[in-house]
């Protein structure tokens, strides 16, 4: 999520909000954009070229043309400053490596971008988890139809032992803050690195 927001922040800074409530799928005017493919119970985000017009018509849930209007600064709450302690906490909780001060600035910009949601008039609208929440949740029968594919799954893993996946002995703790704050001030090469890895696993 953060990564997507970062990405958008890289685009020319235009604060905008959708004209129609509840159709907030953002498509940027640029060529290389995020597109969404929705399924009945969820949605998947993919990087790629925008769908062709024909494809777009088939999927009526995706607005066919972007409709935007600018949001002025005075409609937004005061900008959020992210203190270094909070960065540290977020890094530990989410195992995200911000790496340097530039990243923190980008995080603040991402929050600023999301601040536009505050400008949307939601009076009389119940908070929603998903635009599909009025659909019935499909229930499956209690019948075995999957599994028995250990080999297939294990071959996806770099490290296995007999029929087990092998993982490190526990979560590897992040280095102490003292060691990391040094790197936070060093802002070189961030852009290239963030393309390849923003989230690190364990």
């Amino acid at each position: 999520m953060l990564r997507r927001l970062f990405w958008r922040i890289c685009n020319p800074m235009v604060y905008a909000r959708p004209l129609h409530r509840r159709c907030g799928v953002y498509t940027s005017p640029r060529e290389d954009v995020l597109t969404s493919a929705q399924t009945l119970t969820g949605r998947r985000w993919t990087h790629g070229k925008p769908l062709s017009k024909e494809q777009n018509v088939q999927n009526s849930k995706v607005p066919q043309t972007p409709t935007w209007e600018p949001v002025s600064e005075n409609q937004l709450p005061p900008p959020t400053h992210v203190p270094i302690d909070l960065v540290d906490k977020l890094e530990r909780l989410a195992l995200v490596d911000f790496r340097n001060q530039d990243a923190v600035v980008r995080l603040e910009k991402a929050i600023r971008f999301a601040d536009q949601l505050h400008a949307v008039n939601t009076e009389g609208v119940e908070p929603m988890d998903s635009v599909l929440e009025d659909r019935a949740l499909y229930l499956k029968d209690d019948r075995v139809e999957e599994g028995d594919c250990a080999e297939e799954l294990l071959q996806l893993s770099k490290n296995t032992m007999e029929e087990y996946f092998v993982a490190p002995p526990g979560n590897i703790p992040l280095p102490e803050r003292g060691e990391r704050s040094a790197t936070l001030t060093d802002s070189t090469n961030w852009a290239e690195e963030t393309e390849s890895k923003t989230l690190i696993g364990h």
Binding site: T39, T41, K140, L153, Y164, F165
Partner: peptide
């Protein structure tokens, strides 16, 4: 071990939950 695992249980990308 790992014989009763579906693609969803292994959280392979693209899999979705279907409630029992």
């Amino acid at each position: 071990p790992n014989s009763q695992v579906s693609f969803f249980d292994a959280s392979l990308p693209g899999t979705l939950p279907v409630l029992n």
